[in-house]
């Protein structure tokens, strides 16, 4: 993050401050978001209640009865100025997870459509999707629901004009150069190309959400038998990055 470009700060209501590091999603912008998120964890910030990183910004919820919005913005502005948010600066305890996916068929009904959009074969889509290590930019929309990317340019295909009312938990879907992975059944406007047996959100497990914002994912191909074997498994292979 270049210090000449101070992030933009905007309020939502009287108790959430959005600190936006850029408008266009990129790894560099996301690095700054994550570095700031990490940095905040090392500080005691007056009135701060919760930090929520997204791809390009971080939402800071604070108690406006403890610290006025003006003062809070001032504190955050100073912190941003003091921290080194350049790419790769944020020390982290991020992990890379190897997420098994059964591509195509019933698990990924839109794989052929995606292949047609990308003017290549279904095998090539799968090969390219799993060849790219993807960053988790955000957990949002629903519990444990992952937004990952960025995929190569040819994966920038638009979302569906109409929402599909329900796709099953574990669906791996793509659009606009990103992948989404669900933990619960949900409606979607994205193209579902596969399904993972791993459930990222389980309220009875500690921690309830395993893959979190800032982590990375290597998608790996499994077959139907492996999918069956790994259903219900709570362990997921990972390494520190």
């Amino acid at each position: 993050m270049n210090k000449d470009h101070a992030p933009e700060m905007r309020m939502v209501g009287e108790s959430v401050l959005i600190v936006e590091f850029g408008r266009q999603l990129s790894r560099d912008i996301n690095d700054a978001v994550l570095a700031f998120d990490r940095g905040l964890q090392d500080h005691t910030v007056e009135g701060l209640l919760e930090c929520t990183p997204t791809g390009t910004s971080i939402a800071l919820r604070f108690d406006p009865l403890q610290v006025t919005p003006d003062r809070f913005r001032h504190i955050i502005r100073e912190l941003v100025a003091d921290m080194d948010l350049s790419p790769g600066s944020g020390k982290s305890i991020r992990r890379c997870w190897r997420l098994p996916v059964l591509y195509g068929g019933e698990a990924g009904p839109d794989l052929d459509f995606v292949a047609a959009q990308m003017s290549c074969s279904a095998d090539e889509v799968v090969q390219q999707h799993q060849a790219t290590r993807q960053r988790v930019f955000m957990v949002g929309f629903a519990p444990g629901f992952l937004y990952t990317g960025l995929l190569p340019e040819r994966f920038h295909i638009p979302r569906l004009p109409e929402i599909k009312p329900k796709v099953p938990a574990g669906s791996v879907s793509i659009a606009i150069g990103q992948t989404v992975v669900s933990s619960t059944a949900h409606p979607t406007g994205w193209h579902t190309i596969g399904r993972t047996p791993f459930v990222n959100f389980d309220p009875g497990r500690e921690p309830p959400v395993v893959i979190r914002a800032g982590d990375e994912i290597e998608f790996c191909v499994i077959d139907a038998r492996e999918y069956k074997d790994r259903t219900g498994q709570t362990e997921l292979e990972s390494f520190e990055i």
Partner: peptide, 28 residues
């Protein structure tokens, strides 16, 4: 893709507002 706050007033394509309450979706 921003974070949603309870009380946010969204304007969908038809122009008729939706006010989000406690169980709102967290983002988007």
């Amino acid at each position: 893709s921003g974070v949603i706050v309870a009380g946010d007033i969204q304007i969908p394509g038809n122009g008729q507002p939706v006010v989000l309450l406690a169980d709102h979706q967290p983002t988007g």
